[in-house]
């Protein structure tokens, strides 16, 4: 059993109030005004709405949004890769399966993903690769634990020419 931490270490372990809580910011694309994703309020859990000019971009943006909830991405490099091939009965289930698979890879292999390349995407299948880095707590900060991706209010639709996808995570 370790002894209690020294006062200096205590300080680091202690939570510093609300100072770092602007965590879930809306990302504005430097070239345009379209948001990549935003957080939607849900009493017990966290919702995410992602946008894309096409389905590929929507899938990339929602994955980025999920990893932004999970961890701080600035010190994460794209060193480790995962190949992802999935099939599903429809686009909404595929959207969910994509997030579920990435979350599984994060939980089992400990990789924080930040770059996504989609090779093929249809309503029923996806073939993609994701790049990221194994969690190193000296350099990476984990934010929120996502227990799972839920079906509740799951939506993928085109609104005024822009693809939108909504999902709620159990946290």
């Amino acid at each position: 059993m370790a002894d209690p931490k020294s006062p200096g270490e205590r300080k680091r372990a202690e939570t510093k109030g609300a100072e770092s809580f602007a965590a879930h910011q809306i990302f504005i694309n430097p070239k345009g005004n379209m948001k990549q994703y935003e957080i939607i309020d849900h009493t017990a859990d966290i919702g995410l709405r992602a946008y894309g000019k096409d389905l590929k971009q929507l899938f990339i943006n929602v994955a980025r949004g999920m990893f932004d909830i999970l961890a701080e991405l600035k010190n994460v490099q794209a060193k480790d890769k995962a190949e992802i091939k999935l099939e599903a009965p429809n686009i909404e289930e595929l959207f969910l399966s994509w997030l579920r698979e990435l979350l599984y890879q994060y939980n089992s292999r400990g990789i924080i993903f930040k770059e996504f390349l989609i090779d093929k995407l249809s309503d029923n299948s996806i073939s993609a690769s994701a790049g990221g880095e194994k969690v190193d707590l000296k350099r990476h900060r984990l934010k929120t634990e996502i227990k799972a991706v839920t079906y509740h209010q799951l939506k993928v639709q085109k609104v005024k020419g822009v693809w939108q996808g909504e999902v709620i995570f159990d946290v």
Partner: peptide, 20 residues
Amino acid sequence: GRVMSRSAAIRHLKGRSIAR
């Protein structure tokens, strides 16, 4: 039972130290 979402709690408590 929660009344405030997690992100609402973070917004609402901005600048405060709950630990303190």
